[in-house]
Every structure is written in C-alpha cells, then in structure tokens.
Amino acid sequence: MNDALRRAAPIVVVLAATIVVWYAAAVAMNLSAAQALAGTGAGPGAVARAAWSLDRPLLPAPHQIAQTLFTGVFTEPVTSPRSLVYHAAVTAGTALLGFGLALVLGIALAVAIVGTRTLDRSLMPWVIASQTIPVLAIAPMVVVVLGNIGLSGILPKALIAGWLSFFPITTAMVTGLRAPDRMQFDLMRTYNAGNRDVFMQLRWPASMGFLFAGVKVAATLALVGAIVAELPTGAQAGLGARLLAGSYYGQTLQIWAALVMAALLTLLAVGATDAAQRVLVARRGGRL
C-alpha cells in the first residue's frame, strides 16, 4: 500500500498541476471571447467563469470536456448520430477488423519469412523499408478507389487500419520466432524433432512475449488508421468523422470529446491485450 502510494503521489501531483495550468491557459486563450461575454467592467472572476463556459472556446476547460463526454456517452440514445458510443463503436469495429486481418496475415508472413531464406533476404528489407513511408497518406486514395469498384463501408477503412498495424506484428513475430538460442535448437535436434515439432514446441511458444509487445503497438496503430480512414468518407460516422465535422463547424468541445473517446478506446485496447497476456501467462504456469 505504502509502495503504491509512493508511486502514485508524483503522478497525482503532476496531474493536479496540469489541470491548474490548463484552467489558467483556458482563461488566457479564451480571454477576448470571455471579455465580450462577461461585458465591459466585469471583474476577473466573472471573466474567468465566462472563459470556462464558452460554447466554442479556443481551449475548453477540463470540466466542459468531461460534460460533453458525459452527455455524448450516457444521455444520448446509443443509435443516435450524436452519441459518442455509436461513433466509438463504428471506429472500434473498423479497427478490430483491420487488426484481425493484420494479425492473421502478419503472423503468416512472419512464419513464411522465418521458414524461407529467399523471403527473408528479399522481402524482409521491404517490410522494414515500408515503415519509412507515410502510409496514412494513401488513406484517401484507398477509400476513393475501393469506393469506385463498389467496395465501400467498413472494408476500405479496415484495410488501412490493417496495413498500419501489420508491420509491428510481423517484425515482432520474426524476432520472436528467432528468439530461441542455438542450445535449445540443438536440444530439439537431439530429440530428433522435425521442423514441425521445432516450430510448435520451441519457436511458437518462444515468440509469444514478442507477439504481445507487437500487438500492443499494433492495436493503437489500428485505431489511428481507422480514425484517419474515416476522414475522406465525408464525415458520416466514426470518431474521425466526428473530428472532421467538429473542425468544419468550429465545435471545439465536440473535437475534444472525440479525442478523449479515442484515448479511452486506446486504453481499452491496451488493457484487453494485457488481460489476454495475463490469461496466457496463467495458463503457461506463470511464465511467458
């Protein structure tokens, strides 16, 4: 308990300081609008209160964001396009589908790369080089082109999310499948184990720790991909569409609420990964 307190104390202090600075910054950034709202000759207290309750503040106060988030999540019916739960579900569904594709293809490709020297030498450099390409830039084109051939809806967006999250999974699995050292391979040889057994009994179990590290990065990237892929679809549904619509109409509160919702989704994804990892660790007797 004492240990937890000692670890939490600095975080709480930093968080509290951030909130104080945030409120001060909200007054500073919204000063002119707040003065207009409070009227001439209003005291500093009235101006501050006005700055923290503007409809379209340049920087909303934390409680305004919390309020918008609360109405968006709890008061609106889930099917309404004003409900943040609805938009978050659209984004999460896209990200999940993309992530699933990336997981299957990423692992398959990693297995192929580790198993075939030709692929390792010729394809792996390209997998790594593909990371220096700003893939998100092609999102609008993918959506438009696939829309052209009649593919619209979730699939184009999921492809972008999947493409982004595919890389960390592949590299993590390639590293993981190669993680066992020579002595362990030699031991398998003394057991007269075939390629299949070496893979199932040694390489695959050894790669799991790496896989989860990659999955944690990939889950976040899948969400980023899903959000950005929603931008060119013309702001219909999803957190990205929410951001774009908020940007068009200057609805800052809506933007911030969507951002916080995206952050919560990320936390959920990382938490789910952690939980899955814990289940696996428990099933394997406390080790990964």
């Binding site: 340049l58 998100l136 976040t220 969400l223 980023v224 959000i227 950005v228 957190l239 951001l243 774009l244 908020g246 940007s247 200057g250 800052t252 933007i255 911030w256 969507a258 951002l259 995206a262 952050a263 990320t266 936390l267 990382v270």
Partner: peptide, 16 residues
C-alpha cells in the same frame, strides 16, 4: 500513456 494515444487526432485543434 500520451505517447500511445492517437495523437494525430489533435490536428483539427492545431488547425484552429
């Protein structure tokens, strides 16, 4: 925590 967030989302705020 912040580094793991979809930070590109701040783009509309920065544009504003």
């Amino acid at each position: 925590l912040l580094g793991a967030m979809p930070i590109v989302g701040i783009a509309p705020i920065m544009v504003m």
